Amino acid sequence: MRIVFMGTPEFAVPSLHLLLEQGYEIAAVVSQPDRPKGRKRTLTPPPVKEAALALGLPVLQPERMRSPEAVAAIAELQPDLIVTAAYGQILPKAVLELPRLGCINVHGSLLPKYRGGAPIQRSIMNGEKVTGVTIMYMAEGLDTGDMISKVEVSITDEDTSGTLFEKLSAAGAELLGRTLPALIAGEITAVPQADEQATYAPNLTRDDERIDWSRSARQIYDQVRGLSPMAGAFTTLQGEVFKIWKCENPNAGSAAGSSAATPGTVLEASARGIAVQTGDGVLTLLDIQPSGKRMMTAAEWLAGSKLPAGTMLGSEPQ
């Protein structure tokens, strides 16, 4: 068994470790190229590359997997199986046809729901209570291949995309370990996806991060959780970006607010947090990040800043 493993973010690292722990031969690890990161735009290797190098594994980082050079490099490895987990590129037919056992993907949703690049974030943003991991055969479409195995994972009200990434990453590695022996033995009966039930989770855009205060307190709460700790949800304060990293659960706190207040109105700013009118009640902001500053609690920021009741959040930055 020669396996080529393809993955990029931290989500994929436990699956890579699992393959080695179970004694599979990793011919090479394929990851996205190093990218600039942080304010200084320092060229930074992806987590899977760092893990692979620490394990002494060869690493390939093609800019485009569809390029003839990339296809030839994979073919030269003569893999029996290709395993991918959040790699970030769709594999061309020429690569899909290389391994005798095919190509499989560890996907962070219960397919056919949430096909695409941001299933974990969008499952929280959409208020889902259950998600999971699907292992499927890869096809030329976007997460359209036949399903091999699944495991469900609950989403709590306290989960962020960060905590859910960790849950699904561990669940995916465990499921991969249970699935591979049967797959290798030819004992798998894959199930086609019901395309009519498919939903999509495209990569996040700036518009997905912008808070619309006319939405319900619960919808905004889920948006903030789904975008933390990666991109972060944002509103604006006096024309400048004002990020929101954590809110009080509106189901646990008070969701009642002045029905006369316009959504986006600051009702109160105190040591408890910043109470803002939404489309159906109040949402209390706990962790925030004013423009040009670090993330901090609302109480920390208010110790040196004033935010009068009646201030409007949400006007477009200039």
Rank of each mutant, 00 (worst) to 15 (best):
R64T: 07
P47N: 07
G253A: 11
L98I: 15
G273V: 10
L175S: 12
M65K: 01
G239K: 01
I184F: 00
I104P: 08
G239I: 02
K129H: 13
A118L: 12
T144H: 11
R215K: 05
R294K: 12
K306C: 09
A231W: 01
H17C: 07
A233N: 03
G257T: 04
A85F: 00
D157G: 15
P192E: 02
I3G: 01
D143Y: 10
G239H: 02
G88L: 06
E268D: 14
P192Q: 06
V71I: 14
E140S: 14
P202L: 02
A252Y: 03
A269Y: 05
A201G: 04
Q277N: 06
F165G: 11
T160D: 12
P79G: 05
G132K: 10
L204N: 01
A70H: 02
G253L: 07
L19S: 10
T131K: 13
E158I: 13
P99W: 10
K293H: 12
Q219W: 01
L111F: 09
I135M: 09
A12Q: 07
L16R: 11
E69T: 05
A170C: 13
R225E: 01
E187V: 01
V30F: 02
G292N: 07
N203C: 01
A271G: 12
P112R: 07
E63P: 02
P45E: 08
P119Y: 08
P119I: 11
K37T: 11
A170T: 15
N251E: 13
T265V: 03
N126R: 13
Y137V: 05
R115K: 14
A72R: 10
R210W: 01
S259D: 12
V106G: 02
T84F: 03
A217W: 01
D159G: 14
V83D: 00
R210Y: 00
K93R: 15
E76L: 02
S315Q: 14
S31R: 04
V282R: 15
A118I: 08
F165H: 15
L313Y: 13
P14C: 11
A75L: 03
I274S: 00
A72L: 05
P62L: 02
S161T: 15
A51P: 08
Q89C: 10
G264L: 04
T284I: 15
E10F: 05
G117I: 07
G108I: 06
L176E: 04
T284N: 09
A185C: 02
C247V: 06
T278V: 07
T84N: 00
A75R: 13
S169H: 14
G232W: 04
F234P: 02
E166R: 15
G253R: 08
S154K: 15
G38T: 08
L183H: 14
I288T: 10
V130H: 09
P79C: 05
G117V: 12
P14Y: 00
N249R: 04
K49W: 05
G7Q: 08
I120E: 10
D280E: 07
